[in-house]
């Protein structure tokens, strides 16, 4: 059965590119345009096996979203991979401490993203 990945980014082009790469690799895709939408998606769809998330987003940014999601025990095992233009060590540290499993600086290599997603979802 295909694993479901939640793609969170305020950029429609990035969402499309990530979704396309992962769906062609056999993943089901759910999309969200900001942190709040992402939280709603995670709470309503328990089949989500992984989250690929931007940092700088309107309404609720990616780091705040990770902190919120990971504060709930039922989400401890949910892998969240940050995909962002940001590369500041302080932000990376904050994401790691919040419970994110990895960090990719855009632009990403779609083949590597697929490999990382397979690894993290054990697909």
């Amino acid at each position: 059965m295909s694993k479901t990945v939640l793609v969170v980014d305020d950029s429609s082009t990035v969402r499309q590119q990530v979704s396309l790469a992962l769906s062609q690799a056999g993943f089901n895709i759910v999309e969200a345009a900001d942190g709040r939408e992402a939280i709603a998606a995670i709470e309503s769809n328990r089949s989500i096996a992984m989250v690929v998330c931007d940092v700088n987003m309107p309404v609720l940014n990616g780091l705040e979203m990770v902190e919120h999601v990971k504060s709930k025990p039922e989400n401890r095992a949910l892998p969240i991979l940050m995909l962002t233009t940001e590369g500041q060590p302080s932000m990376i540290k904050r994401a790691r401490e919040a419970g994110a499993v990895g960090w990719i600086v855009k632009p990403f290599d779609a083949n590597q993203l697929v490999q990382a997603t397979r690894h993290l979802t054990k697909a």
């Binding site: 590369g87 500041q88 060590p89 990376i92 790691r96 994110a100 499993v101 990895g102 960090w103 990719i104 600086v105 855009k106 632009p107 990403f108 290599d109 590597q112 993203l113 990382a116 993290l120």
Partner: peptide
């Protein structure tokens, strides 16, 4: 510019 201690674009860093 991008600092030398920042990850390269495209690089995947798994914690």
């Amino acid at each position: 510019g991008r600092g030398s201690d920042q990850p390269e674009p495209g690089k995947i860093t798994l914690f």
